[in-house]
Amino acid sequence: MTHGELEDAIPLYVIGALERSERQVLDAHLLSGCPSCHSALREFQAVATALPFGLDVVSPPRLLKASIMAAQASTVGHDTMGHTSDLPRLGPGKWMEHVSQPDSRSTIAWMNGVPKWIIGSAVAAAVAGSVAMAWIAHDSHVTDDSVALTQWKAQAASAASRSAELQRQLEEREQALLRAREELQRSLADTAELKDQLIQREAELDVLKTQLDLYEKRRARTPEDELAVLLRTQTVKAAVLAGTEAARDASGIFLYDHRTRKAWLYTLNLPACPAGTEYRLWLLNEKPVSVGAFRVGKGETSHLFVQSVPDFPGTKAFSVSLEPAGGGRQPAGVPYLRSSL
């Protein structure tokens, strides 16, 4: 809106004839302190204020003042009740409200936010007010006031009815709140159960992962698998190893395949390795070649050893001797098994 349009809108503004959006724009402009618009506002405000003076004069019921005074007295101590309006703020605009905190409210909206005991107090005050009014009505104005008294009784009945309705609404809300709480508790219980199930599934998953890892490790290393592959190989050859003087009860069988260069050694009744020693398998050719080392633990009667071996077309025999751990290139220890091809 241009300034001219804003200024033109002031006559409509002061009597509440602007649309909400236009009123808000003008409110904002007036807050900027525009002198010419404020001058126009004052002039047209005076017109708006004068309009009700042209109405036919109708005095309020004589008992209204007594009722206000009685209600005011009964609400002492409850002045700090906070309540806001559910009703829309209607025109004229904010500047025309002339109030620092324009709190629009209806009796019904006001009562919605009031606790039961205050409603009860208000009803009691209304009854007390009716009694007071009845006393005041006993005056020279009995005829005039009897109509008003009837009206106020009707109002009291209406207020009681309204109070009952509010009570009913309050109870409905409490019921709804209770249901919502129960629903929330059920949801929380369901959530907790699902969480437990999730934790359980995660634990199971961990176990399965561990088992899978173990299985894969075992599968990668298992000599049985290697043996199975070797036994299915058509070019595999076998040799028997016999125990030496150092271990007469010991024996062994040696399988090997030239093509894949895999060898498999199965031993029986080898003594357990003393600390710092290990058994070493040798290919005996012109000079011995170490194939690998293995340990036999205490109580073990058999041992399976699989190893890739170097090419040994000229090998005549195999032997297993007990050597210092990490021993040298030549056999230095006592032989325990020996075979010849």
Binding site: R42, Q45, L90, W95, M96, E97, H98, D103, S106
Partner: peptide, 28 residues
């Protein structure tokens, strides 16, 4: 009386305030 609404002398005369307050509430 309970000062839930307050008159601002800078924004008009007392009767203008009372009339506007009454008119707005009634229209509400």
């Amino acid at each position: 009386r309970k000062k839930s609404v307050r008159y601002d002398v800078g924004r008009g005369t007392p009767i203008a305030w009372l009339i506007t307050l009454t008119r707005n509430r009634a229209v509400d």
